[in-house]
Computed example of a mutant assay.
Amino acid sequence: MTSTYGYARASSEDQDCAIQEAALRAAGCTIIRSEKKSGTTLDGRTELTTLLDFIRGGDTLMVTRIDRLARSVADLEKIASTLKDKGAFLRATDQPVDTSTAAGTVFFQMLGVFAQFETGLRRERQMEGIAKAKAAGVYKGRKPTVDAASVRSLRDQGLGGAEIARKLGIGRASVYRALQPTERSTER
């Protein structure tokens, strides 16, 4: 007996997979796995890995759109190869992708190229925005996650790097970075 498994993914914690999950249920998925992870890499995507490990010959992995599965051609090819090696198929509810057919396979490959292209464009726009903000003097960068004053205070009390890291629940490298003079303080 073959099964259809659904995979839903959102890129960030403030996004929701509910609409994808509903579409996958309506398409007949018996099991749906969801996660909130970036699609730019396969690393850390435990729910997808579970599905790929579990899927068997004749089964189908279903997504709503190919960009929910991966954002790079290399990752899409790796997933498609894994499915093909197992004798399983890939389908999308919102796109004419069905790797059990030649036309569906070609469309899948074209969509992969466009997903990677879209990611590249988004990255370029982001870098342009950062450059513009820097030129205008309004770019602040990421907010510090380590309280440098607390690190310095504990160092002044005679604590070493490892002990400071344990007390503050941070990595030792973060302690040493916080103790380094910053570019801003040397500019003044």
Rank of each mutant, 00 (worst) to 15 (best):
T82H: 04
M62Y: 02
A115L: 08
T50C: 06
Q20I: 05
T50R: 13
A27T: 06
T30E: 15
F107S: 04
E35Q: 14
I55F: 00
G57E: 07
A22F: 02
V106K: 06
D53Q: 14
T119G: 11
S100W: 02
L52T: 13
L76N: 13
F54N: 09
R91K: 15
D94Q: 14
G120I: 04
A23F: 02
T64M: 14
A115K: 04
G28C: 15
T50F: 07
I79T: 10
S34Q: 12
C29H: 12
T93M: 11
A102V: 14
G39P: 00
A23C: 11
E77Y: 04
A115W: 00
M110D: 03
G104Q: 00
T93N: 08
E77R: 13
R65N: 04
V106Y: 13
R45Q: 12
A18P: 01
S34H: 05
A103F: 01
L42E: 06
G28R: 11
V113N: 08
T41I: 07
R45F: 05
I32N: 14
G58D: 08
A70R: 06
Q20V: 07
R56A: 12
T93Q: 07
I31F: 03
R91D: 01
L24E: 04
T101I: 03
V97C: 10
I66C: 13
T105M: 02
K37Q: 15
G44I: 13
D43E: 15
V73G: 06
E35R: 05
E47R: 15
I19T: 09
S34R: 13
R68G: 00
I66L: 15
L61H: 03
T82S: 11
I19A: 12
Q20M: 09
S100H: 05
E77V: 09
T105G: 02
R45S: 13
R25Q: 13
I19R: 13
L121F: 09
G104N: 00
K84C: 06
C29T: 10
T64F: 02
G120N: 15
V113T: 12
K86L: 08
A74W: 07
R91Q: 15
L83F: 13
P96Y: 02
K36R: 15
S38E: 02
K86D: 06
R45N: 10
I79A: 05
A22S: 12
T64I: 12
D59I: 04
T30K: 15
A18T: 09
D75G: 08
A70T: 04
K86Q: 10
E47P: 06
L90T: 03
A70H: 06
C29N: 11
L52N: 11
M62R: 14
L51C: 10
A70P: 05
A27C: 07
T46F: 01
T119I: 03
D85N: 12
C29W: 10
D43W: 07
L83N: 06
Q109T: 01
K84T: 14
L69G: 03
Q95E: 15
V106D: 10
